[in-house]
């Protein structure tokens, strides 16, 4: 192995494989159905539907560059707990539910008429006492290493005020992490969450 390095101790560790940009052409590999390629998608913007029995929500937004232009070739992935605050992984040992809620969604921002992403999902419950939130991974051309952020909810004021992660962020930037309940669509709430890569409204990104 050429990626072995000697650490100061006796333990040898392998170096992590470096990240590279997803580039502009990921869609037929990672989001093929959304972009109408003839290949199945492992995930898309629909994490849940009426069959889930839990209250549906929509999270929609756009990704903006440093000149406030919407970015049409970003890839947004979300990862969230279910309404009870459980992550559907082997960690929680929850069998795949009959309605196939996996908690994982993935959308490119360039396939819709309005540049951006729209996830239909359920509102996550609190996990480990944290305020309800959705974990977000951002990839795009021009981003050599992906960026992590979180989506919190504007109607969870009490839980947000006690959240250990939100409170670790300087107060004037916390709003960049909180999606705004703006409307209802087909009877369910719509939360708006824009991601600003730069500028006065630059979204908080975490060193995950």
């Amino acid at each position: 192995m050429n990626n072995k390095i000697k650490m100061s101790g006796a333990n040898e560790k392998l170096l992590q494989t470096p990240s590279q940009t997803a580039g502009p052409f990921f869609a037929y590999g990672l989001t093929p159905e959304q972009y109408q390629y003839d290949f199945t998608s492992i995930a898309d913007g629909g994490l849940a539907d009426e069959k889930n029995g839990a209250a549906l929500i929509t999270i929609a937004g756009q990704v903006f560059d440093g000149e406030d232009q919407p970015i049409s070739d970003a890839l947004i992935e979300i990862w969230q707990a279910d309404a009870d605050g459980n992550y559907h992984t082997q960690y929680h040992n929850i069998p795949i539910s009959p309605y196939h809620f996996t908690g994982f969604g993935r959308m490119g921002t360039g396939a819709n008429t309005e540049t951006g992403f729209t996830f239909q999902t359920i509102k996550p419950g609190s996990a480990e006492g944290q305020a309800p939130h959705v974990n977000v991974i951002v990839f795009m051309r021009g981003l050599l290493t992906h960026a992590y952020t979180r989506i919190y909810f504007s109607d969870e004021v009490a839980a947000n005020s006690k959240d250990i992660v939100l409170n670790s962020v300087e107060e004037k930037r916390r709003d960049t992490l909180i999606s705004q309940l703006t409307a209802t669509a087909e009877g369910h709430p719509v939360y708006k969450f824009d991601i600003h890569m730069q500028g006065g409204k630059e979204t908080v990104f975490f060193d995950v």
């Binding site: 990862w79 559907h88 992984t89 994982f104 021009g142």
Partner: peptide
Amino acid sequence: LRTPTKLLVPLKHSLSEITGPV
């Protein structure tokens, strides 16, 4: 024009980070 300009905020891992889709 596309990369964060502010320092990343440190985040101690919770269930949110140590789980993932299977």
